[in-house]
């Protein structure tokens, strides 16, 4: 038996919106300590990794580990039934064939229930090695979204360069070339801060269209954390207050 109730259901709605363009069918792993999922996009370039702790739920019970295979596209359609102020409860029996999703609005007394059919997914699970990232950049999530969006209109690829003084996003295309450079900024206004933690500088290229998809999660978190290592995929991380973390991994483009 699995049951989890989230008071701020909007968070779950936002999570589904933030991953639905990247992954289609996903195995959701339920454990007594929380909910997690890991899935790659069809081209195996990007990976979504979500971890939600039981502590963030108003009520959480999972007697055993369970795997719930869901179509994210269909889950997103169901989530549209939820009002932004709804509480959301997820329920599944042992050996379940469906996931019961309940939306409740205590103020308006409206309740919506949907039984989403589960599917069997044969998915590859990747072991992500523990990595000490040599450059970690914490940046306002709205600002990072805007930079990626605007640069994408000029080029398909961005080169991210880090050093102890700044992080630089540079593009080169038919239109021309240029860069946005952000220096370390620990100003009093927290939302303006850009925090650089660089032990070794990194220079890598990435397809901007994936970054734009990841940035849908900027509504979940005021800050985006970019974790870079010269020999590893980029991690774009969004912390979800008191609940967990949504991470995206993106393989670099490498010049021959």
């Amino acid at each position: 038996m699995f049951e989890a109730k989230l008071t701020e259901g909007l968070i779950l709605k936002k999570i589904v919106e933030s991953i639905k363009d990247i992954v289609t069918d996903v195995n959701i792993d339920i454990s007594p300590s929380g909910i997690s999922l890991q899935a790659m996009d069809s081209s195996h370039v990007a990976l979504v990794s979500l971890n939600l702790s039981m502590d963030g739920f108003e009520h959480y019970r999972a007697d055993t580990n369970m795997v719930l295979g869901v179509s994210i596209a269909n889950l997103a359609k169901v989530m549209k039934l939820a009002d932004n102020n709804d509480q959301i409860t997820l329920q599944a029996d042992q050996e379940a064939t469906h996931l019961k999703i309940i939306f409740e609005n205590p103020k308006t007394e409206r309740t919506t229930e949907f039984n989403l059919n589960l599917i069997t997914i044969d998915s590859e699970h990747l072991a992500i090695p523990e990595t000490e990232y040599s450059s970690v950049v914490t940046i306002n999530s709205g600002e990072f979204s805007k930079i990626c969006k605007e640069l994408f209109s000029l080029s398909e690829t961005v080169q991210i360069t880090t050093n102890t003084d700044y992080v630089q996003f540079s593009v080169e295309g038919e239109v021309g070339s240029g860069q946005v450079r952000l220096g370390h900024n620990d100003s009093e206004k927290k939302e303006d801060q850009t925090i650089l933690e660089v032990s070794e500088s990194v220079q890598q290229q990435f397809a901007i269209r994936y970054l734009n998809m990841f940035n849908k999660a900027s509504t979940l978190s005021s800050f985006t954390r970019l974790c870079l290592h010269q020999e590893q995929p980029l991690v774009v991380e969004f912390k979800i207050d008191n609940l967990g973390v949504l991470k995206y991994f993106l393989a670099p483009k490498i010049s021959d």
Partner: peptide, 14 residues
């Protein structure tokens, strides 16, 4: 420009 690598180059199947 660069060649897009796949995640399989970096992460092993578990």
């Amino acid at each position: 420009k660069g060649v897009q690598k796949s995640l399989g180059t970096f992460f092993k199947k578990s």
